[in-house]
Design a protein around this nucleic acid. Structure first.
Lengths: 148, 148
DNA sequence: TATTGTTATACTCTATAACTATA
DNA sequence: TATAGTTATAGAGTATAACAATA
């Protein structure tokens, strides 16, 4: 099982490198990883309550308050009144938030291209398939023994 | 370049899942990710000055002071006098620190095995090779445009 | 009575700057 | 004069608990 270890070690290395790369990228725009994560979720799902965001990011509601405060201050997001529930508000992107997400999508495509640069197309497809499987197993693993 | 995107997205997912898995594992032992990272470096390199640890973890010297303080308090590491330089100290593992690292190595082997469970051996080897390449490209990418 | 989000409080990781003790 | 590590200070992310307004 030598190769299983190699796979695992590489994935750990990727985790470190990718976090570092993302943080550096965000630093340029004054954003941080958790803030981008939140922005990304709103970008993906549309206007969302903070409650839902807390669940989506697997983080406490209190935490979301802080992140949204920061994103309002930096002009990337805003709180809008919930149409039917006056307790809640809907977090939505501002124009600046939308363009930050668009820039990030471009950047991601660029990085995606470069990390497989020079690989034969067939190998890239095989790698993608193999990683799908790894993600599935890892998800089961993480969710599986989470209930202790 | 659809598959490049799939690869990248999977790697992002792995990053999230792996961080979460590691954190949960550490929580059991009262450790945190940065503390384990430091412990791991000492385990790997032997007794080390805080200066060297700051460079190895790419973090400020002040930060190392805090991490080592915490690890001394939890009994995983200790500061020993440097044999020739009285300004410096050498951080080394205690017995508890060593056994935590041993437990972690076992746990890692277990996870490594499970994330490729059911894959033909040849595919695991191919995946390991492909990931080596990805790590190499990603390293160049991160270090390459770090000099702005 | 339950839920949404907030204030209050606290801990961890992180950084820079100023300072002490040694090289 | 330079280096190793510390104290001082600050900011980000995180959590739990208590509380407000609303369902």
């Amino acid at each position: 099982m030598r190769d299983a270890t190699r796979v695992f070690d590489s994935l750990l290395a990727v985790t470190t490198l990718l976090s570092r790369d993302l943080e550096r990228e965000f630093a340029r725009t004054g954003l941080t990883l958790p803030r981008v994560h939140l922005l990304w979720e709103v970008h993906r799902a549309g206007p969302t309550t903070q409650r839902a965001l807390a669940e989506a990011l697997a983080v406490s509601p209190r935490n979301i308050t802080g992140l949204v405060d920061a994103l309002e201050a930096s002009g990337h997001a805003r709180r809008a009144p919930h149409p039917t529930d006056r307790r809640a508000s809907l977090v939505e992107l501002t124009e600046a938030g939308r363009s930050a997400m668009a820039a990030m999508e471009r950047e991601h495509r660029e990085v995606a291209t470069r990390i497989v640069e020079g690989m034969p197309e067939r190998d890239v497809a095989a790698l993608a398939d193999a990683l799908d499987g790894v993600v599935a197993r890892l998800t089961r693993l993480v969710e599986g023994d989470g209930d202790d």
